[in-house]
Design a protein around this nucleic acid. Structure first.
Lengths: 337, 337
DNA sequence: TAAATTTTCGGAAACGATTGCACATAAAAA
DNA sequence: TTTTTATGTGCAATCGTTTCCGAAAATTTA
């Protein structure tokens, strides 16, 4: 079936395409009579203007590119839900990409996006490399971008994170108050921004409570679940085994559960754990997991709000080079009782 | 900064835009000398052809629309991951929409998409209404669409599901074999395709094992977690309370856990459960949950393959009106021991 | 009634890429 | 040398919309 175009409507109505276009856009220079006729026919034929012709002409796509390092993760799903709620209201669309924690894929995706396919980008960068040199393709482009959660250090734009340092500090203090003396810190990569900040909070908490610290307590894990479990198992088999765990990301907490299942160490009796996590069923785990959870939806909403403001209002300044912090919420459960 | 266009490249190289275009597309009618020059400059300037100009001209967008009823759900995330893996290889992009289980939103999204924004659609429809009248906007459009998981009954196209009937049957038989005599079936809506098929399997299993059946054993839940829990709690407070639960969707299994937590009924001692679920941490629940899980990634891959074939090869027939079934896998865990 | 506005609409260019066609120039055949 | 055939390139139309500019027609003002 031939698509319905403005030109087609114009012919049917014995009008010029320009008139039809203006009528559809409710321009003041079209009489209400013709407007009604045009609208009526458009409605009847279920006319939808070709988005690509419009994008080409207007030089904007009403589309936002979203790049996340993994999709099977509640946190990111929630963030995107938050974003969609606001972008939808403005008639914007979301192109979503999973970089699979891979810097090369990130690069490829970015190069795809800078060609004008999207009006803006929202991104959480992969853990492989937080330096962000691969982001330089964006530097000389005018495309607005905001980062969240996993942010690059030196890219001048707005970034949204939770209060990583403070949450790391408080999570650690919580464990200390519960009597833990040998608390390990689980991190995906020491290079990742969130890892660094959360770790700083952890270290400061130990220091301010005069607890000893051992370099080996920082346990750097990878992306392989199996290897992580094996690695953690070894950690728990040490003579001087830890009695507390602060996991900087959810998947490491889950790996800990599985590693512990292979030993006969009991949680929370022998080891207590707190984890950064946005799992909805933390309360259903064995034992229920104490979590520090990010306001994911809010983060998404805020990212989108920033961009909508920049894109839909005119004469907006570039996105400020600053970090916006939204606090996490701590929930105590059995795992750290 | 001005975007780089073919015209700009042409000027720089003293060539016509058409020549540059042909060179970039590696046309045989361009000398290798000019090709190299063009390619070199394009690479140097990081030239990306304007996707909208191209879409307009070619009448295709290299974009696929994905509509899911909820985003915070591992199953859908996995399906999309599977899809992206294959579409990416073909240079296709994914526009993802969450209909929030709302038929009105589905309609709105569809009307947005039929205007040429996407070359094809992959969809899992909301549970509100499985009749699919709201899909009629698609009927007279030539846009290929495939449905998965939650499919409409009478829309002539390819649909991908798991072996819902059989899995429902086997899950029920498993509970029967474990000694359950009063097995309830939890369903989101009796209207949803997957609910119906899974229920049919459940009913047939009861019948073929000569177990009595009570209409009240079909527990229709809603989308409100709180109400579902309250509802289930009542079910378990009945004098003739169930000793087995088959949950047709994950969220109802979780609601059951929470409802049971409010009673003093023990699982699996007093009630056993099996649920359709793609949770990765079913083994970490209390007790670990016996699951019937769909091959989500495969489903996504298969959807994408079907569409890629239709879109990238020429003279392809329309998508066949048939149902493709990919079997689920059952994993027994503590909840039904 | 004529002139000046205002309202309403049409023509045509533009956005950036692709492609059918024509036209050079070079190489091959007559 | 002339004619034919490749080969390489340019011109211009096209995709569907929006918008600048101009021109009738209708209205107001002089």
């Amino acid at each position: 079936m031939a698509e319905i175009t403005i030109k087609y409507l114009a012919e049917k109505l014995n009008l010029a395409p320009s008139t039809v276009s203006r009528a559809l856009n409710d321009s003041h220079e079209i009489s209400s009579g013709t407007k009604e006729k045009v609208m009526a026919l458009a409605k009847e034929l279920n006319f939808q203007p070709n988005p690509y012709a419009r994008s080409l002409r207007e030089q904007k796509s009403k589309t936002i590119g979203v790049i996340i390092p993994e999709r099977i993760n509640n946190f990111f799903s929630q963030v995107i839900d938050g974003m969609e709620a606001v972008t939808k209201a403005h008639g914007y669309h979301l192109l979503v990409y999973n970089s699979n924690e891979d810097i090369e894929q990130e690069k490829t995706i970015l190069s795809l996006l800078v060609g004008g396919r999207v009006d803006a980008i929202v991104m959480s960068i992969s853990g492989q490399n937080q330096k962000g040199e691969h982001l330089k393709v964006l530097k000389n482009r005018a495309i607005p971008i905001v980062f969240f959660d996993r942010i690059p250090y030196d890219f001048p734009t707005t970034k949204l994170i939770t209060n990583d340092y403070q949450a790391g500090y408080e999570g650690t203090v919580h464990l200390i108050n519960k009597g833990c003396k040998k608390i390990i810190f689980l991190v995906l990569s020491k290079e990742v921004s969130i890892g660094k900040e959360r770790m700083r909070g952890y270290l400061d908490a130990l220091k301010s409570h005069n607890l000893p610290f051992n370099e080996s307590w920082i346990v750097a894990c990878g992306h392989s679940e199996i290897e992580n479990i094996a690695h953690l198992e070894k950690v728990f088999y040490k003579i001087d085994r830890p009695d507390g765990v602060l996991a900087s990301v959810e998947k490491l907490a889950l790996a800990t559960y599985r590693a512990l299942a292979k030993t006969n160490i009991k949680m929370p009796e022998q080891v207590k754990m707190v984890s950064f996590s946005n799992m909805k069923i933390a309360d259903l785990l064995c034992p229920p997991l104490s979590t520090i959870s990010q306001p994911a939806i809010e983060i998404g909403v805020e990212c989108a709000n920033l961009l909508m403001k920049k894109l839909t209002k005119k004469d907006q300044p570039d996105l400020e080079d600053k970090i916006v912090t939204i606090p996490s919420v701590f929930t105590e459960r059995e795992s750290s009782k």
